[in-house]
Amino acid sequence: NTALGMPTIFGAVTVCNGATGQPEFILDGPTVTGRRTAALSMLGVRLFHPGAPRAFLVIGTGQQARFHAQAIGQLYPSATLYVKGRTEASEQAFRAHFAQAGVDVTPAHGAAPKEVDVVIAATTSKTPVYDEAARKDRLVIGVGAFTPDAAEIAQDTVRASCVFVDDFAAAREEAGDLLQAGVDWANVRTIGSAVTDGAAHDGGPVLLKTVGSGAWDLAACRVARQMR
């Protein structure tokens, strides 16, 4: 599908009345996944990054990367947006796509530019695509890898960070970045707890890892219903 410029996964979300079971509407599955994943990442930026970010780096040029770039362009239009793709051609196509929407995207050559204070890895890579040392002034978000044998973030970076996840049970089964780094799960918090109890941590580097959850699809459906 990638070679054809098509999404890797297709699907539909059917929304039914919880009391009667009557179908109410249907949502495109990949769109729900892309938007709610980007929404969680933007919530992470709000919770774990002090002030408005100056520069983002999105690693990847696929569907998840595009949804994140769209969200960044909407919420942080004054921030610099960098992209790092697997090939120069994929970067150029990504930049051209967003140029049509008035969003300027700059290619990142080599390591993440020093001014980048939010990194979002949105790939299905089996090996780390981000291996820089953890920094307390740089939030790292991993959204692409969702199997135990895949890891976008280097183990040393994970171990040196305060780790938050979207769904604790799912992360323990699917978050290869964390599993391969051997994190102490007793120290891992959920983004939900950060919302409820405050995003307090030791002031050190923060890593937000999301693997997806049906609960977020339900939340997206509720938003869609309110907008009907």
Rank of each mutant, 00 (worst) to 15 (best):
L4R: 01
M6S: 02
T8F: 03
G11S: 00
G11E: 00
T20E: 01
T20M: 05
G21L: 05
L27A: 09
D28F: 00
D28M: 01
P30E: 03
T33C: 01
G34W: 06
R35G: 08
R35T: 14
A38V: 01
L40E: 13
V45Q: 06
V45D: 09
L47C: 08
F48P: 07
V58T: 09
T61S: 00
G62E: 02
F67L: 00
Q70T: 11
Y76N: 04
A79K: 05
T80M: 11
Y82P: 03
V83F: 04
K84W: 14
G85R: 00
T87S: 12
T87K: 07
S90F: 02
E91R: 02
E91F: 02
H97V: 00
A101R: 07
V105A: 03
P107I: 03
P107Y: 00
A111Y: 01
V116Y: 02
A121P: 03
A122H: 03
A122Y: 02
T124D: 05
S125A: 15
D131M: 10
A133M: 07
D137K: 02
L139F: 05
L139R: 04
A145G: 10
F146I: 11
D149F: 11
D149W: 11
A151K: 08
I153C: 05
T157K: 02
C162D: 14
F168K: 08
A170R: 12
A170H: 14
A171L: 10
E173D: 13
A175E: 10
G182H: 09
V183H: 09
A186G: 15
N187C: 13
V195M: 15
T196H: 13
G198Q: 10
A199F: 14
A200F: 12
D202Q: 13
V206P: 06
L208P: 11
D217L: 09
D217I: 04
A219W: 14
Q226N: 13
Q226E: 15
M227L: 15
M227K: 11
R228A: 13
